[in-house]
Simulated assay, not measured.
Amino acid sequence: MSFFSSCKNFIIEINYQFSKPSVDASVFQVYDFSQWKLQSDSVTTKNLLEANIDWLKKARAESIHPFGVIVSSPKEIELAAKYAHFIYIPGELCRQSDILEAASQTKLPLIVERGCFLAPIDVIRVLEKLKDADVALVDCGTANGYSDTLLDPRVLFLIKKTGKKFGLHLSDLLAPEGISYTHRPNWLSDSSFIEAFVATGQALGASFYVIKSYGKAAISTEIALKYTSGKL
């Protein structure tokens, strides 16, 4: 059975470092260590790498639920696979063959974002590179003007036809890149739009939702759980 079939309406919470695991069994944490510089021999980089490994060891020892790691290179994948329960591939790398192949070889469950510039039909090419891996897809919206991303139901319809479990990145839909642009209209960051995103996802069969716990795009786990469970 697919790892992603174990529950519905679960939350993926992205953080930069190890934090106290949620007691809610439907919240899976993902640690964003994608800034590792594994090619460098500098003291700073070595210390950073060692710190990240310590976080991974601590997460493996203390997490009461499965957790994942965001990766950005085959070497990061090799290292993260020793500790994480699943691998998370960000949208900007979703077509990078060496990363997809390395991730597939870990035999771990994979979560792959659809890049905001990737045509939805092209997720088929991504899945072909991942072969028989246990994969779930994430839609982060489609790039638009005013530093905005649009949630297009046609995209979700096409993703659903792949037969893979899929989710929505609520933080990226609400505030792309987690950055506040001076030319971005304020109404685009209205947090009540989360309800519209979740409703659209549920109507088309989304199984999970992704949030960030940091930056301008931060969404609290409690709020996300309320929206996804319909308790607001």
Rank of each mutant, 00 (worst) to 15 (best):
F4Q: 01
S6Y: 02
C7W: 00
K8C: 01
N9R: 00
F10H: 01
I11R: 09
I12W: 08
I12N: 10
S19H: 01
S19T: 09
K20Q: 07
P21Q: 03
P21F: 03
V23T: 14
D24L: 08
D24N: 15
A25Y: 00
V27D: 05
V30T: 10
Y31E: 04
S34N: 09
S34G: 15
W36I: 14
K37L: 11
S40M: 03
S40N: 07
D41T: 12
D41R: 04
S42D: 07
T45N: 14
T45H: 11
K46T: 14
K46D: 04
E50N: 14
A51C: 06
A51D: 12
N52F: 12
N52M: 13
D54E: 14
L56G: 06
L56K: 03
K58S: 09
A59M: 13
R60L: 05
R60Y: 03
A61V: 00
E62N: 11
I64G: 08
V69T: 08
V69G: 03
K75V: 02
I77L: 07
E78K: 14
A80R: 06
A81C: 10
A84T: 15
H85R: 12
F86I: 11
I87R: 09
I89G: 06
L93C: 05
C94V: 02
D98S: 15
L100Y: 11
S104K: 14
Q105Y: 05
Q105R: 14
P109G: 09
L110S: 11
E113V: 13
R114F: 05
G115C: 08
C116H: 09
L118M: 09
A119R: 06
A119L: 13
I121W: 14
V123H: 07
V135E: 06
V135C: 10
V135M: 03
A136D: 01
L137R: 02
G141V: 06
A143K: 09
N144W: 03
Y146Q: 10
Y146R: 04
S147I: 00
S147C: 08
D148W: 02
L150I: 15
L151M: 12
P153T: 10
P153Y: 04
L156A: 06
K160H: 15
K160F: 03
T162N: 10
T162S: 12
H169C: 11
L170I: 06
L170Q: 11
L173G: 00
P176Q: 01
P176H: 04
E177V: 06
E177G: 00
S180D: 14
Y181D: 06
Y181A: 15
R184S: 14
R184Y: 07
N186G: 15
W187L: 14
L188T: 13
S189W: 11
S189M: 15
D190Y: 15
S192P: 01
S192I: 10
E195V: 11
A196I: 00
F197W: 09
F197T: 01
G201E: 07
L204C: 00
L204N: 05
I211A: 08
I211N: 11
K216I: 03
K216T: 04
K216D: 14
S220K: 13
E222A: 14
E222S: 13
A224N: 06
A224F: 01
L225I: 07
K226L: 03
Y227K: 13
S229F: 01
G230N: 10
